[in-house]
Design a protein around this nucleic acid. Structure first.
Lengths: 136, 136
DNA sequence: TTTTATAATCGTAATCATTCTTATTTACAA
DNA sequence: TTGTAAATAAGAATGATTACGATTATAAAA
């Protein structure tokens, strides 16, 4: 999901193009990791001095709703990242924040274990230290 | 982990017995589910009218630290439940909040998949509707 | 190009969960 | 019974997030 794909999806749904929206997508495309709303605000202020919290949050959740970003709770704060094309989960480095795909999803086995339950969603996250931070 | 076990562990570590602490443990022992700090406060006010937020949070995190309770983030709010004796994960019903053990943990396969990573923790939660709520 | 409708944004106040601070009370060991 | 550290109450402070009225910008129509 690159910047252009995100913008295309946005406009196809009738939302308007703005430079801020493009820059938000650029921000998330530059690195494979989660960022908080505050992280994004800090970066955006460099090029858009008067951008407001409202714009940050409104667009973050718009992108989540359009399946362009995904969101998770990391110690009580919402964090966002580019949505991956195929379903998978992430290892998250607690030191640098970088994420790495885990190509292993246990949900199908769980469905078998819970025959009378209706399963809507699941979350699987692994936390620790990445090789780079470990050797530093 | 019943009420008496929790209190024993508490006192063995040098913390004092209080009726409030006992009642907090009773609250979590009565049902197999997560409750928020606010849920607990509401219930505690029935028998301890002037109990404060501070007492609620201080004891919740004390119990987490002593491995008597476990904590998770459910849509931006911390929720707590009795810690299970053996490691496992939970299905959480989005309608009634009840939880059910999942006897399946994928972490060992993940460790194999990430040889140069140091893994400290992981979270696996499954969300949906339990059989009781589904048929209602 | 100009006009128009409405989507998007700004600036700031409000809200909500959580944490902190200070004074007071309580548990329990001596 | 008394002394002392732990525990608590009350409420202020904090920090993330949401809400809101006024203003500005986008995109489509004239």
């Amino acid at each position: 999901m690159n910047v252009q794909h995100g913008l295309d999806r946005l406009m196809k749904k009738g939302y308007k193009y703005t430079k801020k929206r493009e820059d938000i997508l650029r921000y998330f495309n530059q690195e494979n990791r989660y960022w908080s709303a505050k992280d994004l605000l800090r970066s955006m202020r460099a090029s858009h001095e008067s951008i407001s919290f409202d714009t940050i949050y409104r667009n973050l959740y718009l992108f989540v709703q359009l399946d362009i970003l995904e969101v998770t709770d990391l110690n009580g704060e919402k964090h966002f990242r580019i949505k991956c094309d195929k379903h998978h989960h992430h290892f998250i480095c607690l030191m640098c924040g970088i994420t790495k795909e885990i190509n292993l999803c246990p949900i199908h086995d769980v469905i078998k274990e819970l025959p009378h339950y209706f399963i809507e969603d699941h979350k699987f996250e692994v936390y620790g230290t990445c090789p780079t931070c470990k050797s530093a």
